[in-house]
Design a protein around this nucleic acid. Structure first.
Length: 221
DNA sequence: TTCTGATCATTA
DNA sequence: TAATGATCAGAA
């Protein structure tokens, strides 16, 4: 187990040091076994990176580097460096949202500072041979935060109005609300249109690929 | 080929 | 059960 980095600089330097290695090389150093596929180990790459960077809070409902205020996210990319998948941010609140403001939202805190680590994610590439990319330490620009805020407020408004069932992944320019659960049988509390509690599936916030693409792009300029 | 809705493992 | 880490896979 590695120690937790004491500063942002130390964290970023570690991230730089693993860039260019393959998943297999990192797994050996971490004494981990590379799964044959990610079907049953979807969070495996994230956990591998957490180990190398010394994240302290595995599977805890807080930021990866709480003392630094930094969140770690791996992002699968294609051969041109474009994101292959949307990026899950956090679970969406479905109750007690009426007084929630963007400024105090969990989502905003989560994305306030993110260490992105691109990893080759093409399914043609065997998992063990995938390369780790150069890390990006990112905070939203004014423009980006406004985009996120706009989408977030629209979605939260609908939740507060009991229109959760009408929300689909098509809402939002850069932010989506999608199911996030172990399976479609899972239910949790939410508001119905009459203001009473109903059961629906848990949702999570996701960043669209066009948004994460712009983050990756800005890094190469 | 891209996107949306569904799904998997693990832990507190 | 709810939150963490995300990707799968069929529909469009």
């Amino acid at each position: 187990m590695k120690t937790t980095p004491k500063s942002e600089e130390e964290l970023f330097e570690r991230a730089r040091n693993i860039a260019g290695f393959t998943v297999l090389e990192l797994a050996i150093e971490a004494n981990m076994l590379v799964p044959s596929n990610l079907i049953k180990d979807k969070g495996w790459i994230g956990q591998l990176l957490e180990w190398h960077l010394g994240a302290c809070s595995r599977n805890k409902p807080k930021q990866d580097f709480e003392h630094l205020g930094i969140e770690l996210k791996s992002i699968p990319i294609g051969h041109k460096g474009q994101p292959l998948e949307t990026t899950s941010i956090c679970i969406a609140p479905l109750v007690q949202v009426h007084e929630l403001s963007w400024e105090q939202s969990y989502l905003r805190k989560k994305i306030s500072r993110i260490l992105w680590i691109p990893v080759e994610g093409k399914r043609e590439i065997p998992l063990s041979k995938r390369l780790i990319g150069y890390p990006i330490l990112w905070s939203p620009s004014k423009t980006q935060e406004l985009q996120l805020k706009t989408d977030w407020e629209e979605i939260i408004d609908m939740i507060a109005l009991g229109q959760i069932e009408q929300i689909t992944a098509r809402h939002g320019e850069v932010l989506q609300l999608r199911p996030k659960a172990a399976n479609s049988q899972v239910r949790t509390n939410a508001y119905g249109t009459d203001g009473k509690l109903i059961k629906t599936f848990p949702r999570g916030f996701y960043l669209r690929t066009c948004f994460t693409a712009s983050i990756l792009q800005s890094h190469f300029i």
